[in-house]
Design a protein around this nucleic acid. Sequence first.
DNA 1: TAAATTTAATAACAAAAGTTAATCGGGGTC
DNA 2: GACCCCGATTAACTTTTGTTATTAAATTTA
Lengths: 247, 247
Amino acid sequence: MADFLIRKLENFSRLSTEDRHALDQASRQRMRQIRPRDDIVREGDLPPGVTLILDGWACRYKTLEDGRRQIIAYLLPGDLCDHGVPILREMDHSIGSLTAVTLAEIPPETVRQLTADHARLAQALTWESLVAAAIQREWTVNIGQRTAFERLGHLFCELYLRLQAVGLTRGTTCEVPLTQAEIADTIGLSVVHVNRTLQELRSIGLIALRGRELTLPRLEALQRAVQFNPNYLHLDHEGRHLDANET
Amino acid sequence: MADFLIRKLENFSRLSTEDRHALDQASRQRMRQIRPRDDIVREGDLPPGVTLILDGWACRYKTLEDGRRQIIAYLLPGDLCDHGVPILREMDHSIGSLTAVTLAEIPPETVRQLTADHARLAQALTWESLVAAAIQREWTVNIGQRTAFERLGHLFCELYLRLQAVGLTRGTTCEVPLTQAEIADTIGLSVVHVNRTLQELRSIGLIALRGRELTLPRLEALQRAVQFNPNYLHLDHEGRHLDANET
DNA sequence: TAAATTTAATAACAAAAGTTAATCGGGGTC
DNA sequence: GACCCCGATTAACTTTTGTTATTAAATTTA
């Protein structure tokens, strides 16, 4: 059930069979199905406990009074949300599904046990939350400093690598179930301009889009063209922390 | 020594004398002075342990190859940085001082003891880190969706309230030791446009700037004008979580 | 105190991105 | 199979914001 999360965590450290089993069990206790484009939690609600996206895409977002909307983060299969359960009184943003979503609510007690009994797991989960924070920071940079062209290319690089980390790419291709309006709300551009920029990326041959299928035929070139530096994803040390054989 | 942090945490919950004393002791173990506009940690460095800003302003920032720079977060007196010490191998961004800064490095062992021995403190520290994350999200919204006018006003509202939370405001005034160039790098605008927008805010009487002294004579009006909603700062429940007398 | 260096303020012009509106196209529905 | 609806595309035009350059003012330093 927790396959995507497990796969992601193993980018950071090798988990034992028990680690994996425990995580899997935890994810099976309370599952929930969400329809596409439905709210999972709304701003003002009591923050939910730890939530794991088992499958599908969701996002954090915030709506201004006049209807402008910013997508703040994507929640992909294997992503966790921890709002520090009883500490904050209410959500300051909403979470909504983009596609159909399957999620697991992991009870506080289960989280406590998991991290208490499985040191590696605890470490790996810390890693995952540090990376989530790093992604949020990178989005600030992306929206604040980059041109439309760079923003869009950067987003695609990030999505591709994050999907790859959970095994959701085939070759140079991955599914990106976003409308241009959603992309616009993500990188702070108008739909029209997203469309223009998309054309540009296509015409140079840096991306290909067939339906919801995104192909990055020349990832390296794309990364260079938009100054994408993957360091913030902290994916580059497969288990090194736990192997004693470092240089 | 840790006065600002203590004051900030008490916006969330009342601390006991021992809590405060323990925090204060922890902050005295390893102090460091940083000159204005100096790097504290650089991208690529090994992430430092838990760092507490005792006094002065610092910021997280990221520089692109071609020199563009984005300020990702402000670190004000009483702010904490926790990079999850040994988990990530290298910093994906830099931290630099804006003014002269006094900081405390809190050894991992001390952090462990603090949170183990002082439950309230542990909770309060979790609160502070959740708020830091919420601020980061709000910046995404600010830069992504708002006009120059709103962005700037929003930033000022945030800074004022954060400074107020640590007792660094006098009436409607606070010190904001930023150049217009730094503000520009914060909200993703050019210096020239920041200047223009500043004039506009001034001419309407929503802000006054004398040197580094920022006055918000009509905070409410400013908040309305820029659609500032302070909910993301989660400052509105003075100790409620620990008092049993809730509704 | 004077010189040097930042920082702030303006202006004129250029470019990027937004707005509005119309059309096209595919997928699903009746 | 005709109709609808949503999402994508395109065009024309507007607005916001960026760029470059110059000057003024304020700080810092010598």
